[in-house]
Design a protein around this nucleic acid. Structure first.
Length: 421
RNA sequence: GUGAGUGUAGCUCAGCUGGCAGAGCACUGGGUUGUGGCCCCAGCGGCCGUGGGUUCAAAUCCCAUCACUCACCCCA
């Protein structure tokens, strides 16, 4: 085959699209009830928007972006995530002037050049929800409740919510330095990746799954013991709201996540499914990002949810019946075929799903086609019927057939089909 | 970027101790001249991923290469 999709890029075929749409409409209705508004930023931005917000040392920026240099020498990139674009739009259009707290969501493809595997693609879809302009723990709680509600409505169960606080610009640097000092004593035990991390981004050593690093980390100081009073109070309140809302969570001081802009609250919904990519939804607070991008010093929090992973976990639960036409009109012979074409056209004007055969085929072949499409009824018309002025209407399920007047046939059919509903 | 596995009909796969390219499903036609599903019969459909090597002979053995899948890293 000469042309196939690129590695890591997938065709979403009609059968899958039905599953997607069902999910999407549920998600949208939950978002509506939480008062979130959709925003659709472009999928390409200046590379620097991403590198500055996500962080130069992150995997995403250092090796996973699809970047090109345009004709004028400017570097632009396909978005690897959505938050930076939403933040940019919030700043650029001064959305905070219209309403000090903006609750926005976006739905669309993201691009990361990684080696694909189960649950991981180079183009993948996310639902992103962001609350911009509020700093209190209630917005944290509300956002997490939103994510929980979406996952529940989608039909997912068995996910675990992991929760952590990464501290703020006051307390995090202090902890970071302490951790760095601790790690520097253990350099010889750490894996080569972590030796680098210990210098550039020590918190990410917590992420490492190499066993020796694990042991080092298990004795390392916990960030939750070192956050400042304000961060502590914020985190405690959040936990209280979640508990009060019957949302179960597990504290995980090793939950760091790969984006630099997170502050304070950090969370992730994980599945226990073996092998598969376990993060279905991840997010956190990013109080410093808007200012970093040249905007006002406003706090914000958001999450990203991976659609493919969600659908994969849903399995058959996400599937439904495929839709079927109300009627198939089978014409036999040149004259009847011409008539049928007009009837079908007029019935569709009335919003009725009708199917027909474009070519000239025998009745058997047309019946087979009607059956395959799942048509509920079939109207058969040939020379005899045209002569007598009576068509034959067959109910495909009961096999019952009756004559139907061809004079004013479109109205006759409308009556029959609408009565059926 | 690293490691492992798999490439045979549109799809799912068998064939792999070298010896004529196979099955089921799907598709087309017939059994039924104008009646679908079930059944029966027939047909269509293959550079056995690609290139090289070994051999009288390669889908089968060897080497290379590409593609896909899974896993690691990291993330949704």
């Amino acid at each position: 085959m000469e042309f196939t999709n690129l590695k890591g890029f997938k065709d979403i075929l009609p059968e899958d699209v039905r599953v997607w749409q069902r999910l999407e409409s549920k998600v949208r209705s939950v978002l509506r009830s939480f008062g979130f508004h959709e925003i659709k930023p472009p999928i390409i931005e200046r590379t620097e928007l991403f590198s500055r917000s996500i962080g130069l040392d992150t995997d995403i920026v250092s090796k996973e972006m699809y970047s090109i240099v345009d004709a004028k020498g400017k570097s632009i990139s396909l978005r690897p995530e959505a938050t930076a674009s939403v933040a940019r739009a919030y700043i650029q259009h001064r959305l905070y002037d219209k309403n000090p707290v903006q609750k926005l969501f976006t739905f669309g493809p993201m691009f990361r050049r990684e080696r694909p595997q189960k649950g991981r693609f180079r183009q993948f879809y996310q639902i992103n929800a962001e609350i911009l302009g509020d700093s209190g723990p209630r917005s944290d709680a509300d956002l997490i409740i939103l994510a929980t509600t979406i996952l529940n409505e989608a039909g997912l169960s068995g996910l675990t919510l992991y929760l952590n606080s990464l501290g703020c610009s006051q307390c995090r640097p202090r902890f970071r330095q302490g951790l760095q000092e601790y790690l520097s004593q253990k350099t010889d035990v750490l894996c080569s990746d972590c030796q680098k991390r210990a210098k550039t981004n020590p918190l990410r050593v917590f992420d490492c799954k190499v066993e020796t690093c694990n042991e080092v980390v298990s004795d390392a100081p916990s960030i939750l013991d070192h956050i400042c009073q304000d961060c502590r109070g914020h985190f405690d309140s959040l936990q209280a709201y979640l508990t009060d809302s019957d949302i179960f969570f597990v504290l995980n001081h090793r939950l760091v996540r790969g984006l630099d802009y997170y502050t304070r609250t950090s969370f992730e919904f994980q599945t226990e499914h073996p092998g598969a990519q376990n993060a279905v939804c991840g997010g956190g607070r990013y109080d410093g990002l808007l200012k970093l991008l040249g905007g006002p010093d406003h706090p914000a929090i958001g999450f990203a949810m991976g659609i493919e992973r969600l659908i994969d976990l849903l399995g058959d639960v996400g599937k439904g019946e495929s839709p079927a036409p109300e009627l198939f009109v089978a014409g036999l012979g040149e004259k009847a075929e011409e008539e049928v074409f007009g009837w079908v056209r007029d019935l569709r004007k009335a919003g009725i799903w009708v199917e027909m055969e474009y070519g000239s085929k025998g009745l058997k072949a047309q019946m087979k086609k009607a059956d395959r499409l799942g048509a509920k009824k079939v109207l058969m018309v040939g020379d005899d019927e045209l002569a007598s002025g009576k068509g034959i209407l067959r109910d495909m399920e009961t096999k019952e057939q009756k004559e139907i007047d061809l004079k004013n046939i479109v109205n006759e059919l409308k009556k029959v089909l609408q009565k059926n509903e």
